[in-house]
């Protein structure tokens, strides 16, 4: 009666693909980190020089 309540933890995860990482996903993972480094540099005032207030001043000059 109670046995259908018990889970077989062995059946939750595939054995043969347990250590597989899809290549596309790995590329995505590292590409997003690289992009993050670029964006952080570009949009941090003390690094890339951009600031939201100076960007406004520029747009008002136009």
């Amino acid at each position: 009666m109670a046995d259908h309540f018990v889970d077989d933890i062995e059946k939750f995860e595939a054995k043969e693909t347990a250590h597989t990482l899809p290549v596309g996903w790995v590329i995505l993972f590292w590409a997003l980190i690289l992009w993050g480094v670029y964006y952080f540099y570009m949009y941090t005032p003390s690094l890339g020089g951009w600031s939201q207030n100076s960007a406004l001043e520029e747009s008002l000059q136009k």
Binding site: W25, Y39, F40, Y43, W50, S51
Partner: peptide, 24 residues
Amino acid sequence: PDWIQTTAIVFTIFLIAPSWGSVV
């Protein structure tokens, strides 16, 4: 401050990877 916004944006974009890890 801009740097806090930028940091948040960078990590937000990064989160696509772990999220899609579960999707995939």
